[in-house]
Write a protein that binds this DNA or RNA. Sequence first.
DNA 1: TCCAACATGTAACCGGTTACATGATTCA
DNA 2: TGAATCATGTAACCGGTTACATGTTGGA
Lengths: 224, 224
Amino acid sequence: MSLRHALLGFLNYGPHTGYELKKVFDVSVAHFWNAELSQIYPTLKNLETEGLVEMEVEVQADRPNRKVYSITEDGRRELLDWLTTPAEPDQVREALLIKVWFGSSVKKGEIIPVLEKRASELRERLAGYAAAAGFVREYTARTEMQSEALFWQLTMDAGIKHSQAHLEWIEDTIKTLEKMGESQFSTPPESLHKMHTKWRVETLEKLKAGAELAFRGTEPTTTG
Amino acid sequence: MSLRHALLGFLNYGPHTGYELKKVFDVSVAHFWNAELSQIYPTLKNLETEGLVEMEVEVQADRPNRKVYSITEDGRRELLDWLTTPAEPDQVREALLIKVWFGSSVKKGEIIPVLEKRASELRERLAGYAAAAGFVREYTARTEMQSEALFWQLTMDAGIKHSQAHLEWIEDTIKTLEKMGESQFSTPPESLHKMHTKWRVETLEKLKAGAELAFRGTEPTTTG
DNA sequence: TCCAACATGTAACCGGTTACATGATTCA
DNA sequence: TGAATCATGTAACCGGTTACATGTTGGA
């Protein structure tokens, strides 16, 4: 649960209400960590009962009162502690790869549009990053906020690099699939069954060692 | 929920028990889609009540009976339908990026070990991929299973490319941080507060348009 | 007139993980 | 002797999303 710590992080900049924090999330870290109001409100309440933040009510007429949260010394300690502790690798869950994995179960032409759809989404996203990056660069050049903006830039770079790599993979994959003959595809179920049985018994067994190194190797190294 | 469809995908190769399916997951798609037995069993039961799979009990002495599941025609239709429908972009959640985002809240030296830890994990992972890829190539060359293995190879390529991009970003980031002067760091809370207030009001407002394009642009295009 | 913004929340659900329960067999 | 494999499950929890509830103000 990093939402707690993300909230502490923003409150370390200064006091905010839950509503404000949602907006801050949306224009800053939303590309790698979304947060809903319905989750922010109870989380702030929890942080308060734990003594990591303090709340002050600002009475308002004709509107619900604002509940302004500030970080406490305990909260600041907790935040700095968390920030300097290595993060557990957040595990991947990519439905697209499942579709590719079972690509041999459908006709050749049918998996490519799925990839092309994702490719066009990624191109849009990269264009958006480019626009946002322009703003950041422009602003940083004219203010004394280089440090803050640098870290912002760094997380955007991560998003860009990730999107680019993903896009390249999709483009390569489409090319590979297009080069392939139609022959191996739409194998009738019975033969697929036989193939798989053999595949399972022979290949999977042999691959276990390599796979374990690749897929499990980093898991035990995780840290809170 | 792609677990349903992943299970259908493997059952389309041939009948399996839940226990077997877990093992198949572990040596094949675990690098991008983990599955626990405690989730597989009830999911299979659900698929059965929906008529997408059928179950046959194999009585065993001294062991719990094996429940062997097979895909039905309805299940096969559902699978092929899902496979050829574009995937919703599974949204990113990277705790490491939160730590980097708030990197200006800690002393310069303190965020680098966090990055280095992740870097070494990624190098391990890449070594594992290399080993597994070797096995796949070797085996594919000697069997008639090129098609199946190709799709396997493709998902591994995705993992490799992703890991490489992530690693490169980390290495670049470490270099950038090391090049920076100590000056901007450990800004005392009060000044940070002022900085952030200004930053929030001016920068965040201006960035909104760009950010929205980048971070929200692809969301409405999602499809189940 | 209608929608967005302000401002707070609760409740139901959902996919997934961790822990718990049972118990024989085989191999080191 | 003790761990791993075979084989099935349940229950509690957890982080997060979606839907629901309320009500004003100000601008297009």
